[in-house]
Amino acid sequence: MTAIDVMLSAVGLVAVGSALAVVSTQHLVRAGLWLVVTLGAVAVEFLLLRAEFVAWVQVLIYVGAVVVLLLFAVMLTRAPIGRSTDLDRPIGPALLIGAGSGLGLAGLFAWVFRDMRVNPPPTGSAQRVGEAIFGDWVLPFEVLSVLLLAALVGAIVLSKKDT
């Protein structure tokens, strides 16, 4: 156990704990704020794993934009301060699906990579990420771009007034 391992586990605990808080809190807006903590902790995990670029993309896109959009939307509705007692959250199925997929995936990874030893890769700088995306993964990247473009065009068409 190196210092990095300890920090990795500690931040991981923070991430999992705040993720649990997201789904279990009865304060509607606070759930969104807990999500900020979760995503921030995941960003720190990326940092600890030396994937700097991905970490800051995580902060820029998820904390800075996605969660903000989510909070914005929630605040446009009722967004009560205090507990909402009328939340419809069946615990049983949620536990089954959430814990099942989480534990299942964790177990799967642990089993598949059980004999693998990886040396820490060099820092995930912008250059490396760029080379990977525009080298090996250029086709999927372009396909994704087209998908996003299609979604954009769709959004414009949907929001356009019928004349």
């Binding site: 700097e52 820029l60 904390v63 914005f72 820092t123 912008a126």
Partner: peptide
């Protein structure tokens, strides 16, 4: 920082969370 510019932009964007927190 190797990606200082990106870092700065990402971090400045976090400020809006504080605004939403204070507002709500």
């Amino acid at each position: 920082l190797d990606i200082g510019l990106f870092f700065a932009l990402a971090i400045v964007g976090v400020g809006v969370v504080a605004v939403l927190m204070a507002a709500w």
